[in-house]
């Protein structure tokens, strides 16, 4: 799915940026450009950050 329409960045690229350590909208933007123009996709980027954080929390919980 295309997440950032201005910079043409899809969800996989954003996911890769998050997996690479991006933990804020600014860090996602710095890595792949998503959310750096009109800002319309920022709620979606927030949701992707939130989903990644939940997955990490669950994984940590299962690992413990």
């Amino acid at each position: 799915m295309v997440v950032c329409h201005c910079r043409s960045v899809n969800d996989r690229t954003v996911g890769a940026a998050i997996a690479d350590g991006a933990a804020s909208l600014e860090e996602i933007g710095a890595r792949c450009g998503a959310g750096t123009r009109c800002g319309g996709c920022r709620p979606m980027l927030d949701a992707l950050l939130g989903a990644a954080a939940r997955v990490t929390a669950t994984t940590v919980q299962h690992a413990a």
């Binding site: 799915m1 997440v3 899809n10 319309g40």
Partner: peptide
């Protein structure tokens, strides 16, 4: 006001979204 426009990159992804 608009919600995020969910643009799929393949036919099946479009149907899913």
């Amino acid at each position: 006001r608009l919600n995020p426009v969910r643009v799929g990159e393949t036919p099946v992804e479009k149907l899913t979204l």
